[in-house]
């Protein structure tokens, strides 16, 4: 690497913008007054939010079933059986009762890519689901698996709790931890392409089949705590 190019580029950039180096307080204050007039919090109640999530997931070819908390192990077993597949992967941290009996399970404790590729499917949890775009967000924490785990198998079953569903993308960001997650994968439907004549084809390189189980923790009625996080936090950034 050329240290001189680094300096040359930064000098040119600073000269171009007449910005001076190191004025971080000034930077934070100009950032804090940027306009952000778009919609932050959703308007739907819990039932409508879930209905939207289900509709949007299905629109992009994900299979969705709903169940109550107590029915989850049975719902997972039913999905696995219906898939006609036999060997499944699970990330560490997935509840033991999710690993239905009668199937071959491998827990990913450093499996090779080839081993992962040979499995029929994978079961994971998620961090959040965004109704507006039908998106599942994985932060690759325990239960969500390494990135490769939800990539190579052709069949992915993702379990999402109703309390994990938000309506808008800004609501998702408000739920994200601080500091932000280091690894993030958003999944919106199975792998797809429209490269040939703009025809959407399911399943190029990622899983061709995406199944979602939506778990209601209690009977559906709006007892949801509205999120009291300030939606767009504007605290000063930390500079090294």
């Amino acid at each position: 690497m050329s240290a001189s190019s680094r300096q040359a580029i930064l000098d040119r950039v600073r000269a171009a913008t007449s910005a001076t180096a190191g004025d971080h307080a000034q930077l934070a204050s100009t950032y804090s007054v940027l306009p952000y007039p778009y919609i932050h919090a959703g308007k739907l109640d819990a039932a409508a939010r879930i209905a939207l999530l289900v509709a949007r997931l299905r629109e992009y070819d994900a299979e969705v079933v709903e169940c109550m908390g107590g029915e989850l192990p049975a719902a997972i077993a039913a999905q696995l059986a219906a898939s006609g597949r036999h060997s499944f992967l699970a990330p560490p941290g997935l509840p033991a009762e999710w690993l239905a009996s009668g199937f071959e399970w491998k827990i990913d404790r450093g499996l090779s890519a080839e081993e992962i590729d040979q499995a029929d499917g994978v079961v994971t949890a998620a961090f959040c689901a965004i109704a507006d775009s039908g998106t599942l967000a994985l932060h690759h924490s325990p239960g969500e698996g390494r990135r490769v785990l939800t990539l190579l198998p052709d069949w992915h079953l993702c379990v999402v709790r109703a309390s994990q569903a938000v309506e808008t993308l800004p609501e998702y960001f408000a739920r994200c931890p601080s500091p932000p997650p280091a690894l993030v994968t958003w999944i919106s439907g199975p792998s797809a392409t429209a490269d040939i004549e703009m025809t959407r084809i399911k399943g190029v390189h990622g899983p061709r089949f995406l199944h979602v189980i939506l778990v209601h923790d209690e009977p559906i009625h709006d007892k949801e705590k509205s999120p009291h996080h300030s939606l767009r936090l504007k605290e000063a950034p930390h500079f090294d």
């Binding site: 039908g134 998106t135 280091a182 993030v184 994968t185 958003w186 999944i187 792998s191």
Partner: peptide, 12 residues
């Protein structure tokens, strides 16, 4: 599309 199928973000 409302969202592209995959978005990846990684840090180092």
């Amino acid at each position: 599309e409302r969202m592209n199928p995959y978005t990846s973000l990684w840090t180092g």
